[in-house]
Simulated assay, not measured.
Amino acid sequence: MPKLNTLVRSLPLAAALFFSTQVSAQQVVSTLKPLHLIAKAVTDGVLEPVQLLPDNASPHTFSLRPSDMQVLTDAELVFWVGPEMEQFMVRPLERTSAKVVALYTDHNSDHDDHDDHDDHDDHDDHDDHDDHDDHDDHDDHDDHDDHDDHDEHGDEHDGHNHDTHIWLDPHNAAEIAVQMTDALVSVMPEHEAALHANLNEFKLSLEQLDVELKTLLEPVQDKGFFVFHDAYGHFVGHYGLNQLGYFTVDPARQPGARHLAEIRQQLQDNNASCVFSEPQFTSAIVESITRGISVGQGVLDPMARDIAPSKTAYVDYLRGLATEMAGCLSN
């Protein structure tokens, strides 16, 4: 009987521990895969964070499902880039009691004017403007946008304005990790020592990676290239690379014919060593523009879709992206 009593008494404790583990797994949520990889690094051995968007989803086109809303309802802490990236999250986050941490705050002041024009909530709320938006999509306007894209390109890659893919700069990744750690400590102070130990280890690995990638990319800094969409400004700026342009600002939006013709002309003039597509989107446009032209082709993934989450996954991911870029530009 004593053994049975011991077992009976231990079952509620075991169940409680199991339940606690399951709850903590739902408490810390990151919207995007790259943010999730950073969260994995800083929470290693403390808890298992949750990734909200599936690996193959794009924040440009994603809509939350009921199960996703339940994850947000159960969350104690939510990390997101901000409305500039995950516009679909604005209203759902207003309905959660979780502590919400926007990781793009350092750049918000640079986006005030841009957000006034591009805020999707305003667009959704003012249906009367739908006809106006349809007019904006006319070919003549697309051509105008093509010129705007070129004008914005110089600014974006000097000051990284309007580029919300902040995780592609290792310095930004370190700052993201600091913000995550501060928020985590605020909701689970009993794990402060472990969280800060993870943070320090992650920052050291980033410093070592940065030295490695600078050495890798320095020989190809002058090699021109095009990317599929405007996602790499922080990476390009940090490593001093020669990005000539991009096919589209928003991968959900078809690039204008004049803009594509300008890219093809530069390719024909041998200004570019490589053209990079992305696994999330069709490469038909890239294939059409490069047909008959001798130029290298590579694949870059700004969303880390094929990277298995782990303590070192973010470092492995950024190293892989840099290696793909250097390999194509070296040929």
Rank of each mutant, 00 (worst) to 15 (best):
D115T: 06
D118F: 09
Q70P: 00
F88R: 03
F62I: 09
L72P: 03
N108D: 11
Y104F: 15
R65F: 07
P66A: 05
F79C: 01
K99N: 11
A98H: 06
D44L: 05
H60F: 04
D119Q: 07
V90T: 09
F62T: 08
T96G: 03
D115I: 05
A39C: 11
K33I: 07
S109A: 14
V78A: 03
P59C: 00
L32P: 08
D113P: 00
I38G: 12
M69D: 02
V78P: 04
D74E: 14
W80T: 12
V29E: 06
A39E: 09
A98M: 03
V29K: 04
N56F: 04
D122H: 14
S30E: 05
P34E: 01
S63W: 01
L47K: 08
D44Q: 10
D122N: 15
D110G: 01
W80K: 15
P92L: 02
P49W: 09
E86F: 08
D55W: 00
N108Y: 11
M69F: 02
T96E: 01
V46Q: 01
A39M: 07
V71E: 09
P92G: 02
Q51A: 13
H107M: 13
E94G: 06
Y104D: 15
V81D: 02
H114R: 13
V100N: 03
D122R: 15
E94I: 03
V101Q: 04
P83R: 09
G82A: 04
F79T: 04
A41F: 07
F88C: 00
D116L: 12
W80Y: 14
H117Q: 14
T105R: 11
P54L: 04
T96R: 06
D115N: 10
Q51G: 13
A57D: 06
L32F: 12
L47T: 11
V78W: 05
S58T: 06
Q70L: 10
V29M: 05
H36W: 00
T31R: 06
P54E: 04
D74N: 14
A39H: 02
W80H: 14
P54Y: 05
H60Q: 00
H120E: 15
D115R: 08
T61V: 10
V71F: 06
D55K: 12
R65S: 12
A102H: 12
R65P: 05
I38P: 01
V46H: 01
M85G: 06
N108Q: 14
L37G: 08
A41P: 04
D122A: 15
K40A: 11
N56G: 08
H114V: 11
L93Y: 03
L52A: 07
K33Y: 10
